[in-house]
């Protein structure tokens, strides 16, 4: 099967309905209202973005967002930012255990929020690149970009649970 790979300037990507994208290939082919999804949401944030139509059928794959033309790049990044709601935790006010749940109160790039973590052994993952991924009891995800870059207080509050 021939997969259409989008890179550099071989396609123009514009905003479609809602968070959907329109794609126009350099050879004139057009696709409307595609949904952008990461093929590697954890290990390769900006690489290999698949574009699906409403039926979930893949129409094209972006090799690397960063090679796209500026406007296309912005549109794809915005679409992804809307689809993937993984708040980046910037500050941890509180983290304590109660009745077997880890209760957390944090500040994120999307505002302040409080949530519970069920099991700290399974729901908190420390990646090699310094990122920390957290899953709460409702299956929402959060991310700490780099634990060591957090302020001292936040580090202190959360350290016992890492």
């Amino acid at each position: 099967m021939d997969r259409i790979y989008i890179e550099y300037d071989n396609a123009r990507i514009t905003k479609g309905e809602g968070i959907l994208l329109n794609v126009e290939l350099y050879d004139g082919r057009k696709f409307e209202n595609l949904e952008a999804r990461r093929l590697f949401p954890i290990t390769g944030l900006d690489k290999y973005i698949t574009l699906l139509d409403e039926e979930g059928v893949e129409k094209a794959v972006i090799r690397d967002i960063n090679t796209l033309m500026e406007e296309s790049r912005e549109n794809v990044l915005n679409a992804l930012h809307e689809y993937y709601l993984i708040p980046k935790i910037t500050r941890i006010y509180e983290a304590y255990e109660k009745y077997g749940l880890l209760k957390m109160r944090v500040d994120t790039d999307r505002g302040k929020y409080s949530f519970d973590v069920k099991n700290r052994n399974n729901d908190i993952k420390h990646l090699y690149d310094g990122r920390v991924l957290i899953r709460d009891s409702s299956d929402n995800r959060y991310e700490i970009r780099d634990f060591r870059q957090l302020d001292k207080k936040s580090q202190q509050v959360f350290n016992p649970y890492m």
């Binding site: 809602g18 689809y83 993937y84 993984i86 929402n140 995800r141």
Partner: peptide, 17 residues
Amino acid sequence: MYGNAMLRVTCGDKKVD
């Protein structure tokens, strides 16, 4: 979507979030 969702209704041919 990932970590969030939208409640959406369709009225005729118009989609409303």
